[in-house]
Simulated assay, not measured.
Amino acid sequence: MSATRSPKSYGTAVCLCGIFGVMGVHHFYLGNILHGLVDFALFVVTIALFLHDNPLALLFLLADVLHTIIVFYKLITEQERDGQGRLVCLASTPV
């Protein structure tokens, strides 16, 4: 993977993860389409389980929230990469 800086906005990626993290919107923005689809599917399954009063819904919700927290941490510490393998970081951060 390349160690170059991503052209994607660090602030936009952090905001999308913070607000819509459990839906995986930030993955789509960063070009990690497969990761975004998996994250969105996890969200949809969680909602479906809640609608059917399935006790597994809490487990799926916990997994989705935990995953979002990990990705959010990686974003704010500038360790997350976009779909091309480039680091998502502040423009002032040297790579």
Rank of each mutant, 00 (worst) to 15 (best):
T4W: 12
M23E: 02
G21W: 00
T46N: 02
F28V: 06
G21K: 01
Q79P: 03
T46Q: 06
S2W: 13
L42H: 04
L58F: 13
N32P: 00
Y73M: 13
L37F: 15
F28I: 06
S6L: 08
P55H: 10
T4H: 13
V44C: 11
H26M: 06
R81S: 10
L42D: 00
F40M: 14
L49S: 04
H67D: 08
P94S: 07
C15I: 13
G85L: 10
L49A: 01
Y73V: 14
L58H: 08
A57M: 08
L62V: 11
V71T: 12
G24F: 01
G31K: 04
G11P: 06
A13E: 00
P94M: 07
E78K: 09
V38E: 01
I69M: 10
A63K: 02
A91H: 10
F50Y: 15
V95M: 13
P94H: 10
P55L: 06
G85R: 09
N54S: 08
I19M: 11
H67C: 10
T12Y: 03
V65W: 05
S6N: 11
I47W: 05
F60M: 15
V22S: 07
F72E: 04
L59Y: 13
S9P: 03
G11K: 11
T68D: 10
G31A: 06
V44Q: 07
D53S: 09
N32W: 02
F28A: 00
I47R: 01
V22G: 06
H67E: 09
T4K: 15
L34R: 15
I19Y: 12
F60C: 10
F72T: 01
L58W: 15
D64E: 07
N54L: 01
V14F: 01
A91E: 11
L90E: 07
L66Q: 09
T4S: 14
L61H: 03
G18E: 06
